[in-house]
Write a protein that binds this DNA or RNA. Structure first.
Length: 580
RNA sequence: GGUGCGUUAGCGAAGUUGGUUAUCGUGCCUCCCUGUCACGGAGGAGAUCACGGGUUCGAGUCCCGUACGCACCGCCA
């Protein structure tokens, strides 16, 4: 071994021990005949001191050299409180260079000035830094807890295929061409959905997997093309069972990684979440619900509001207390542009301060309407009312986005809080303008609510399902549902989606057949591991919690993937690249 | 597919109404220094101003396009 101790473990009590350490030179401080070296490994940093008799040993050693050092642990006269090992140093008597290093393109320290693209190109250097290293260690801790808790409750970890079958009705698949079957493709799984349901039919009862999933869709700050799900499925179980199991896992994770014990899991129906917060993943670290003020303005003297009501649109209002002084005219102009991104035409605002109104709709609205609004919303001095009059869904989403943005900017969010909520009873279908038909909102194996079974084919818009999400601090942390386990019911749903018998057989044949051989009632979830670790580690960037992430255009700056391949490889696969 | 912002020594930034040798910090190299821990001090090297085109007597600066990066909308059963 190159070491008998790590760089993070020596303390005062080790004084006098002769030790051997190995690691990277994080910093070299040459004071003339005495040289200090901060030696770094995964566990921490230890100061190595080379006195006048030994400083020549590190004459040519530079930052990020890998060295092996032997010496005696000494107690420092001036301890460094910033380091766990700050009370001691190792007085070196030997040094061996294990590997030299070029000058690195970035400063390897907790605070680096390197921008993200450079850090991604040299990710292996970035991982030496605490902010990234700690997140990978946290991620490991989370998966370890998950495995332990689920195993305690008789869950079985089963690995499902990466080379699988393309599943329509979902995200775009990553495809893998088959060599043996010319013209055919495997697809990388978007999730192990079908496999885990087949495991239930196979009697596996309680399954989980730390599963890699792939989706060929455009990316975001919280989305990568490949990501990891803590995938679970339970037989002979319903919402209550799966909620209880997930809550148990979350409680263990938050207790053991953050020391947080008082987690709450309130439930809110999808329609209510949209109505109050304009989002199916509202951040409940602050409340500020939207209020429907449509009725107040049905006879408004303000034509914009009156016409909106007549056209069947909705007027939604959002109140921020004590915000008059914090929101400038310029800010309202910015917000007005901001809502347009969400297809809303405009954002109206009204300030109420010193018992007087002002704002963009102050002149347009007569005094009695403003007083009625004040009364209805119980306005107090200093309050700001933001309103959007538009199609109900547009008004909700636009104002919901404003709620989230201003909640952050006005400092309404307590960043030490963890607010979960279950969102339940998602719509069964949503209408695809692109395909001119109803498509599954979740996936076509999701069970409808018992009371909506008769709406499956007749009233798709008002048919709700037994799908649920768990939201944490405004992030969709998991999705899941109670599945259909009855062939007749499944046939109805496919019918409602407008799929022919032939399409069903081609797309889901083996899956549907399985349900004819005895399927237990079952339900499950897929927990987004990256999002969970993001929140636990306080970052809003998914790349921070992935060892080797891709850029927003799904490119790996480090390895240059995807890349061109040799003609030979294409020939083996009978593939030809079209030149255009 | 769309919108916005960005690209200047190894790294991070500044660069005025277009004007002569492109500035600062840091890192790097050399020298000095026995208690630093973001050590300190002195000196030095280091730039096709992302790429392509255009306007102009003259472009880092203005215009158009491309590439890449970031964020958002669409998309993500």
């Amino acid at each position: 071994m190159n070491r008998d101790h790590t760089c993070g473990e020596l303390r005062k009590t080790d004084e006098g021990k002769h030790v051997k350490l190995a690691g990277w030179v994080a910093k070299r401080r040459n004071l003339g005949s005495i040289v200090f070296i901060d030696l770094r490994d995964r566990y921490g940093i230890t100061q190595i001191t080379f006195d006048e008799n030994h400083s020549d040993l590190v004459k040519d050693v530079r930052n990020e050299y890998v060295i092996e050092v032997q010496g005696t642990v000494g107690v420092k006269e001036n301890p460094n409180p910033k380091l766990a090992t700050g009370e001691i140093e190792v007085i070196a008597d030997s040094c061996r260079v294990l590997s030299a290093a070029k000058t690195t393109p970035m400063i390897i320290a907790d605070e680096t000035d390197a921008l993200e693209d450079l850090r991604l190109k040299y990710r292996y250097l970035d991982i030496r830094r605490n902010p990234i290293k700690e997140k990978l260690l946290l991620r490991d801790k989370v998966t370890t807890i998950v495995r332990r808790v689920l195993h305690e409750d008789d869950f079985v970890e089963v690995e499902t295929p990466i080379l699988s079958k393309s599943t329509p009705e979902g995200a775009r698949d990553y495809l893998v061409p088959s060599r043996l079957y010319k013209g055919r493709f495997y697809a990388l799984p978007q999730s192990p959905q079908q496999y885990k349901q087949l495991l239930m039919i196979g009697g596996m009862d309680r399954y989980f997997q730390i599963a890699r999933c792939f989706r060929d869709e455009d990316l975001r700050a919280d989305r990568q093309p490949e990501f990891t799900q803590i995938d679970m499925e339970m037989s002979f179980a319903d919402e209550e069972d799966i909620f209880a199991e997930v809550e148990k896992v979350m409680k263990a994770i938050f207790k053991e990684t953050k020391g947080v014990e008082d987690l709450q899991f309130p439930r809110i129906r999808y329609v209510d979440a949209m109505d109050k917060y304009g989002s199916d993943k509202p951040d409940l670290r602050f409340d500020n619900p939207m209020v429907n003020v449509t009725e107040l303005f049905k006879d408004s003297a303000f034509a914009v509001f009156k016409n909106a009501v007549e056209e069947g649109k909705a007027i939604k209002a959002l109140v921020f207390h004590n915000a008059c002084d914090k929101l400038s005219r310029k800010k309202f102009d910015e917000l007005n542009e901001f809502v347009k991104v969400y297809k809303a035409k405009a954002l109206a605002y009204l300030k109420y301060d010193k018992d007087e109104f002002s704002g963009s709709v102050n002149n347009a609205l007569p005094q009695e309407e403003k007083l009625a609004l004040k009364d209805f919303l119980k306005l107090e001095n200093g309050d700001v009312v933001l309103m959007v009059a538009d199609k109900k869904a547009v008004a909700e989403v636009a104002l919901g986005a404003v709620r989230k943005k201003l909640g952050e900017e006005l400092g309404l969010i307590d960043h030490n809080k963890y607010c979960f909520e279950w969102i339940t009873e998602f719509p069964m279908y949503e209408y695809s303008e692109e395909e001119n038909r109803w498509v599954s909102a979740h996936h076509p194996f999701t069970a409808p609510r018992d009371e909506d079974v008769d709406k499956l084919m007749s009233d798709q818009a008002n048919c709700y399902s037994r799908a649920y999400d768990l939201v944490l601090n405004g992030y969709e942390l998991l999705s899941g549902s109670v599945r259909i386990h009855d062939s007749q019911m499944q046939a109805k749903v496919f019918d409602a989606l407008g799929l022919s018998k032939e399409q069903i057989r081609n797309k889901f044949g083996f899956f549907i057949e399985a349900f004819e051989y005895g399927a237990p009632p079952h339900c499950g979830v897929g927990i987004g591991l990256e999002r969970l670790v993001m929140i636990l580690s306080g970052t809003d960037n998914i790349k921070d919690v992935v060892a080797f992430p891709k850029t927003a255009s799904a490119y790996c700056l480090m390895s240059d993937a995807p890349n061109y391949v040799d003609q030979d490889q294409l020939d083996f696969l009978s593939l030809e690249i079209r030149k255009d």
